[in-house]
Simulated scan of single mutants.
Amino acid sequence: MLQRGSRLSVFSGARKYDEEGIPNDVEVIYTFVGSGHEGKYRPTMPKQPPTEEAQGDVEFAGKFFEWLEEMLKQGKYPGHAFEVIPGGLNGVAEGLNRLRSGQSGGKKFVYQIGQQARE
């Protein structure tokens, strides 16, 4: 439940964000991945906060991902479980079949693009 005077960070690529039910005294802050790449909001984004709010996003994103890389190296965040499916892109069908049959077990499937199919 949102408390009075709190801030809500919204991550949305949707064409429309429904603010119904959010109290008037809650500050809504829009977070868009594109501003971390380009330093500005795209014209197609559903809400257009002031351009000044995107200033510094590229620098912040760069520093954040450097920090995250270090945390992963130190083992502070284990990352998501994954399984390498052999055969490169030829293994995609196998991965899709595993997904359809519920055999992913919460793992991400990784395909090594340069790898040749095993015969």
Rank of each mutant, 00 (worst) to 15 (best):
P50Q: 01
L99S: 01
V33F: 13
P46E: 03
I113K: 04
K73P: 02
Q55S: 11
E59R: 05
F109A: 03
G79A: 11
K76E: 11
E52T: 03
Y17C: 09
T31S: 14
P49H: 04
L2M: 08
P86L: 00
S9I: 08
L2I: 00
F11S: 03
R4G: 06
G56Y: 08
P49S: 04
L99E: 00
H80P: 02
G106P: 02
E66S: 13
S6D: 07
V28K: 03
F32H: 09
E52M: 05
F82H: 09
E27F: 15
M45C: 10
Q103A: 10
I29H: 07
G105R: 10
Y30S: 06
V92K: 00
G95Q: 00
L96Q: 10
M71G: 07
L68D: 07
T31M: 15
A14C: 08
G114T: 03
V84H: 10
S12W: 01
R15P: 07
Y17F: 15
F64Q: 01
G88S: 04
K107H: 13
A54Q: 11
S12N: 04
M1G: 15
P50E: 03
I113L: 13
R100D: 13
D25I: 06
Y111N: 01
Q74S: 08
G56D: 11
E38A: 12
F60C: 01
E52G: 02
N90K: 09
Y30P: 04
L96E: 09
N97K: 06
K108G: 02
F64R: 00
V92P: 00
E70G: 09
P43S: 12
S12H: 01
F65G: 00
G95Y: 00
L72N: 10
V58D: 01
A61M: 12
G56I: 04
G88H: 06
K40P: 04
Q48N: 13
P43G: 05
R98S: 01
M71K: 14
K107C: 04
L99D: 00
V28F: 12
Q103S: 12
A54S: 15
E69T: 07
E66Y: 12
D18G: 08
L68R: 13
A14P: 02
M71L: 11
T31D: 13
L99T: 05
